[in-house]
Simulated scan of single mutants.
Amino acid sequence: MTNYNGSLLEAENATIPVNNRGLHFGDSVFETIRYAGGKLLFWEDHYFRLMSAMRILRMEIPMEFTPEFIDAEIDKTITASNAIKDTCRVRFTVWRSWGGKYAPQTNHIEYLIQIEKLDSPFYTISEEPYEIELFKDHYLNSGLLSTLKTNNKVIHVLGSVFAAENDYQNCLLLNENKMVVEALNGNIFLVNGYKIKTPPLSDGCLKGVLRKQMIDIIGLLPDYILEEETVSPFELQKADELFITNVITGIQPVTKYRKKVFENKAAKELLAKLNVKARLG
């Protein structure tokens, strides 16, 4: 089932108007949320990120858009999908209502909730080979807009096509200064001994919810120091580990970048902490 502005529709029969500002102009933001154990994981962080993105894009936030209201609408959709006991990927998309061209005639919004069932209720570590490369055909711009989860993802799409054509599992994106920003589908972390490094938001990486959880977890561990600093491509082959984070997969270790093969010791340690936090949070 899908939920379009509060109305439940069969997914295969659901339609939205072709006059849609998300489709025409990418005037849209979304949240991808993991549902497991009967709850939305890290829901508060997702909610505040969504509200922040809507404000930055000057969308009018409806008075009823409280955490409780959106949570209830998602729960209604999950229940109607007979997925209340399952693990799911929830996508909550918001776009500005139709009217105008680049200059909108209204700041009112519409929303869509979609559900996709997942296999495991817990975050797990994949032992499969996972090779990455840099995607250098196009660059992300550093700054605030790149940190938002909008529908403007054409660079990520082209990077994914490049990865598939060249048998890579993922690619890393660069900003206009040719510094590493993020992976195609998540934030990147480098491990060097007791130091764990990730690019700062000012370099243009997504303000990832799992990125925030990792930073919080690492900050409580006495054996590691977290650094939010610019990452040069030359640092990648010097790292002991590389791993990618997002709320659906959790932690994805990189096994190979060019000639460098990586371990995943820290990733496994952090995964255990992440599962505990997800269960208790």
Results as ranks from 00 to 15, higher is better:
N3S: 09
N5H: 15
G6P: 01
G6C: 01
E12N: 05
A14H: 10
I16A: 05
P17K: 07
P17N: 07
P17T: 09
V18P: 00
V18G: 06
N20L: 07
N20R: 09
R21H: 12
H24C: 07
F25K: 08
D27I: 06
E31H: 07
T32M: 09
Y35S: 00
A36T: 10
G38A: 14
L41N: 08
W43R: 07
D45N: 13
H46G: 13
Y47L: 04
F48R: 11
F48G: 01
R49C: 00
S52V: 02
S52R: 08
M54Y: 10
L57C: 07
L57Y: 08
M59A: 08
I61W: 01
E64T: 15
P67R: 10
D71E: 15
A72K: 11
A72P: 09
K76V: 06
I78D: 06
A80M: 04
N82M: 09
A83N: 00
K85H: 08
D86W: 05
T87Q: 10
T87R: 04
T87N: 03
V90I: 14
R91A: 05
W95F: 09
R96H: 02
W98K: 09
G100L: 09
A103Q: 15
Q105I: 08
H108W: 10
H108T: 12
I109Y: 12
I109M: 07
I109R: 04
Y111Q: 02
L112H: 02
Q114P: 10
F122H: 11
E128W: 15
Y130M: 13
E131S: 12
K136W: 05
D137W: 12
Y139M: 06
L140Q: 05
L140C: 07
N141G: 10
G143H: 11
G143P: 04
L145F: 09
T147G: 00
K149C: 12
T150N: 05
N152C: 14
N152Q: 13
V154S: 08
I155G: 06
L158S: 05
G159K: 11
G159T: 11
A163L: 08
A163Q: 02
E165V: 08
Y168K: 13
N170M: 11
C171V: 10
C171K: 11
N177Q: 14
K178V: 09
K178E: 14
M179F: 11
V180A: 06
N185R: 01
G186V: 11
G186H: 04
I188K: 02
F189V: 05
G193T: 13
K195W: 03
I196Q: 12
I196T: 04
K197T: 10
S202A: 15
K207A: 14
V209I: 11
R211K: 03
K212T: 03
M214I: 13
G219H: 08
P222L: 11
D223A: 15
I225S: 06
I225M: 07
L226R: 05
L226K: 02
T230K: 01
T230S: 06
S232E: 10
F234E: 07
E235I: 13
L236G: 00
L236Y: 02
Q237T: 14
T245R: 12
V247F: 01
V247T: 07
I248S: 03
G250Y: 12
I251S: 06
Q252H: 13
V254I: 05
R258I: 15
K259W: 04
V261W: 05
E263V: 14
N264V: 00
A266P: 11
E269R: 08
E269L: 04
L270K: 03
L270A: 03
L271F: 01
A272N: 15
K273H: 15
V276E: 02
V276P: 00
A278Q: 10
G281Y: 03
